[in-house]
Design a protein around this nucleic acid. Sequence first.
DNA 1: TACTGCATCGAACAGTGTGCGAGTGGCGTT
DNA 2: AACGCCACTCGCACACTGTTCGATGCAGTA
Lengths: 244, 244
Amino acid sequence: MPRDTDPITSSVWVRPSRARRGEQPTLSREQIVRAAIELLDAEGLSGLSMRRLGAKLGAGATSVYWYVANKDELLELALDEAMGQVELPDPAVADWRSAVGDVVRSVRTVILRHTWMAGLYGIHPAIGPQAMRLSDRLIGVLTAAGFANLDMAYASSLLMSHAFGSAVMDVAMHTATALAGKDANDLVRQLEPYMDRIAGEYPHYAKWWAQNKGADMERMREDGFEFGLQRLLDGLESWLRSDA
Amino acid sequence: MPRDTDPITSSVWVRPSRARRGEQPTLSREQIVRAAIELLDAEGLSGLSMRRLGAKLGAGATSVYWYVANKDELLELALDEAMGQVELPDPAVADWRSAVGDVVRSVRTVILRHTWMAGLYGIHPAIGPQAMRLSDRLIGVLTAAGFANLDMAYASSLLMSHAFGSAVMDVAMHTATALAGKDANDLVRQLEPYMDRIAGEYPHYAKWWAQNKGADMERMREDGFEFGLQRLLDGLESWLRSDA
DNA sequence: TACTGCATCGAACAGTGTGCGAGTGGCGTT
DNA sequence: AACGCCACTCGCACACTGTTCGATGCAGTA
C-alpha cells in the first residue's frame, strides 16, 4: 500500500479502503480484519502473524500488504472492529444511569470476549469509526442527563476508563491463571503457603486475606466491577445535582 | 535457568534470585532489570530485545537467560520494579480522601513516566512484591477509613482501575500524537476538516466539538483525571456514610 | 494488439526469542 | 596440591517474525 507522509491523510481512518474494479478481487480489507480477529480470538496476540493470516485466507503472506500498510494498522482496524460489538445505549431510555451502565457493562463484556484487546489499548487510541460511534451515543445520553462541555467529556472518559481499566485487570488475571492451567480459585488456594510466608511484609493484606480467603474469585470480579460502576454513577449523579 | 513445571513454585516471585557464590558474577537480576527499564524508557516496548539488552550490559546476548527464564518474565519484573516508584500513602494522614487520592495520582504519574507499562497491564497481572506493597498500604488506608471485607477489595480495585484506565488512555493518545510528530493540539486542529466531513454520522460528537474545539488537550487530560478521581471518591464516601 | 494499472505472490533481508552444548574460572573437598 | 564440581558466560543454530522489492498475471481500455 503506497505510503503517504502526511500524518493526517495517511491515517487508516481517512484513507479509503481499496476499491474493487472488476468483480471479485479474492481479498478485501473487511475479510482480512475478520480473519485477523478470528485468529486473535483463537490464539491470542502472539498467535497473529502475517504469514498465518495469509494462510488462513488462502492467500500469499504478503498479499495482505495491498490492503493494509502495517501489522500495526491491521491491529488498529481489528481493535475498532471489535469495538463495534459493543451494544449502544438506547436513546429512548429515560433513566440515564441504566443507559450509561449498560454501555459500560457491554464494553467490559466485549473486552473479556476478545482478551487481546487489553494489550492494545495502551498502544492505539480508540479513535476509529466504531469507537467514535460509541462515543457519540454516550455523549448523547450524557448531555441529555445534564452534562455539558468539558464536564461532559470528563464524565464520558471516566466511564470509559472504568470499563477499560477493570476489564484489563480482569483479563490479566484471567490469562495468568489460564496460563497456569488452573482455575483462579485453585490457584489462590495453592498460593496460601506463599501468602503465609510473606504475611509479615504485608500486614494489612494478610489480615484481609485471613478473613476473606473463602471468596469466589470469579464472582468477586463481577461484583467488584458492578460495585465500582455504581459508586461511580453515584459520584456523577450527586455532582450533577449539586451543580444544577 | 532451570525450569520448574509446578505453576506455583515456578512463578518469578517465589523463585529466589540467583545467589552469587563468590564475589562479583558481573551480572545480577537487579542490574538486568534496571538496564531493561532504561532501554524501555528510551526506546519503548519494541526497543527492548535480548540482544540489545545484552549489549547494553556488556555481556553476551544469552547470558541474561541465566537470571531470567523468559523475556516475558523480564517484562514482569520490570513492570513490578517500575511500580515500586509509586509513592506510598502516609498512614499518618487522617484524611483518607487525600491519602487515597495521592496514591492514585502517583500511579498515574509513574505510568505516564514509563509509557511502556500501559501495554503490559493487559498481559501480566500486578502481583509482584512492589505491587503487593502498594496494595497493602492502600488496604491499610481504606480499612482505616471504614471499608471492610469485600467492599474494601472492590473500593481498592476501583481506584486502581481508574489510575490504570485513565493513564493507559492518555498514553495511547500521547504516543499516537508523538508518532505523528505533532503536539496534540496541532493534531486536533489539523483534524478539523475531517471532523466536519463526518459530522453527519456523529451528531452529538460534532455538536460538542463545535462548542469545545478551543480546549487545550493536555490540560483536559489532567483536569479530566482529577474530575474523575473526585467523583469516584464522592461515590465511595457517600456509600461509606449510608452504610455506617 | 498494445498498454495501463490493480492485484498477487516468491524470494530475500534483517532481526527476533530461545535451546543447546561447549567453554572458563574459582571454590570446596579430598 | 590436585581434583572435580558447579556457577556462570557465550557462540551457534533454529524457527520464526515484519516488511521490501521486483516479477508476474490479469481485466479493461485505447
